[in-house]
C-alpha cells in the first residue's frame, strides 16, 4: 500500500473519454468497514474507478446523488452482511453494477479500527479479482 496523496485537482473526474466507475464503500465503524474504505481508496489510486461519498447518498446531498447517477457503472463494497452501502444505494434508486461483501472473504468482523497494511493488500487483491 503506498501513501500517494490524491491531489485536489483530481477531485472531480471529467467524463470525456471512458465512462466513470463509481466506488462506494460502507466505511463502517468496524474492521471490515474500515477495510472497505481502505480498499476503495486503493482502487481509486489505481484508476479502477472514482471513490465517492456513500454517506452523501444516504444524506440525499444533491451533487453527490447526481454524481452517482452520472456514473457509467457502480461498485459497492460492504464490510459486513448488514450491507448498509448496498441498502443506501437501493434506497436512492441507484443501480449497482457490482456488490462486494468483505466478510465473504473469511474475515471476521470486530471493532478493531487499526488496519493491518498486509491485510489491506490481501483484501485488495481479492476484490480486484472479483471486478
Amino acid at each position: 500500500m503506498d501513501n500517494t496523496v490524491i491531489p485536489m485537482s483530481e477531485g472531480a473526474k471529467c467524463s470525456c473519454g471512458a465512462s466513470v466507475v463509481g466506488i462506494f464503500p460502507c466505511a463502517g465503524a468496524s474492521n471490515v468497514g474500515q477495510l472497505s474504505n481502505a480498499v476503495a481508496v486503493e482502487l481509486h489510486k489505481q484508476g479502477v474507478g472514482n471513490m465517492m461519498c456513500t454517506v452523501g447518498i444516504g444524506g440525499k446531498i444533491n451533487g453527490l446523488l447526481k454524481s452517482a447517477e452520472g456514473c457509467g457503472s457502480i461498485i459497492v463494497i460492504d464490510g459486513c452482511p448488514l450491507n448498509c452501502a448496498q441498502a443506501t444505494m437501493e434506497e436512492a434508486g441507484i443501480p449497482i453494477g457490482k456488490h462486494i461483501l468483505l466478510t465473504d472473504m473469511d474475515i471476521k468482523k470486530n471493532k478493531d479500527l487499526d488496519l493491518d497494511p498486509a491485510q489491506v493488500k490481501e483484501v485488495l487483491s481479492k476484490v480486484t479479482e472479483l471486478l
Binding site: A12, K13, C14, S15, V20, C53, G56, N62, L64, S67
Partner: peptide, 10 residues
C-alpha cells in the same frame, strides 16, 4: 466544483 459535491464533470 467540489463545494457542490460534484465528483464528475461537466
Amino acid at each position: 466544483i467540489l463545494a457542490y459535491g460534484v465528483l464528475i464533470t461537466p
